[in-house]
Design a protein around this nucleic acid. Sequence first.
DNA 1: GTCTATACGATGATAGAC
DNA 2: GTCTATCATCGTATAGAC
Lengths: 204, 204
Amino acid sequence: MILLASLTKGAAILFVGGVVPRLTDARKELRRTQIADAAVRCFSRNGLERTSIADISAESGLSTGSIYSHYRNKADLVRAAACEVLAKRADVLREYAALDAPPDPDELLARLTAAIDPAEARVGVQTWGEATTDPDIRDIVVDTTDRMRAMLHDCVTAWLIKVKHHEPAPARERAAPIAHRVMALYQAELLYAALRTPTEETAS
Amino acid sequence: MILLASLTKGAAILFVGGVVPRLTDARKELRRTQIADAAVRCFSRNGLERTSIADISAESGLSTGSIYSHYRNKADLVRAAACEVLAKRADVLREYAALDAPPDPDELLARLTAAIDPAEARVGVQTWGEATTDPDIRDIVVDTTDRMRAMLHDCVTAWLIKVKHHEPAPARERAAPIAHRVMALYQAELLYAALRTPTEETAS
DNA sequence: GTCTATACGATGATAGAC
DNA sequence: GTCTATCATCGTATAGAC
């Protein structure tokens, strides 16, 4: 780790004025996710707006100045956190979509529901609320939702073809409304998970 | 209207030190809803937290001092607004539940979806987000959701009995999962409506 | 890059006249 | 009950040392 860090610095010096200093970028990205992760934990406890930069500073162990050297402003950080949470949920789905023995829709929904992390569900729902007024967040949410629905579509289509022995063309067509419903039911489960779970008290 | 107002004041004077001055209470409640309505419009545009008391003051035409004489603080006002919006959505449902020709679940969902007001949907979704961290709001959301699900349960039960000619006892049992699904799909539609609709730009 | 200290603005809430 | 004017607090963002 320490060796890697020193190598990184060396590489950065070597590449000054040259092409992309990859390793330095990778480390910078690592810091960014470290901050974003801390932000997500704060958001999960106190919500998007009730979390101050000072809170994230305390949670991440970094100073406010350091945070602002990685993110332009708070909105930028909120966007990054929203991306992270939503993308993580999409990844869970991608896993099932690539399965060679596709589960039926009910089973698919059950697995997705079982994989919900309450803390991330809270931030996800907070993101929905923010999306109603912030165009940037809105785009992130809509895009992620569309991508997830598309993956569900692929998953259901594969199930129709491989298990129910439909022809590919009609299978894709019939899969669309089913994917829409599974997505809707999943979102509802996400909401329930976010509300059901006891939100641990903040130390304010 | 003016006559009613003067009558109200007279009644209040007559009942000073006596029993409940009903009409005065009614007028006070009217002011409260007037403020709450203005708050809902502001929330719909700018969100729960980005709306200042000054915004609500401008929207309602009342001063900040006047607002604080009707609501203890902003959190109290947010609670009132949340109650109002959620209750209004429940009322739409109650209407269909009382119908003597109960619609089938798909039709029920379609009607509920068609009755969605985008502005209120936005505040509703914002309420969900707030509910993830604010226990008071959480209770309001959960209670309202439970009541709505119960009404859906009644509605579906009535449909099973009157249209599908089930016996009452098994009908109630079979209606439960159906009501759960309709509720979930409705909430998803509410989310879509809140995100789909272009949020008009604020005048900040 | 990271820290401490701070400036500046915004906002929730109150005081006191009418 | 309603207004205007004001206070005090909090939080974002920056400056400058190391």
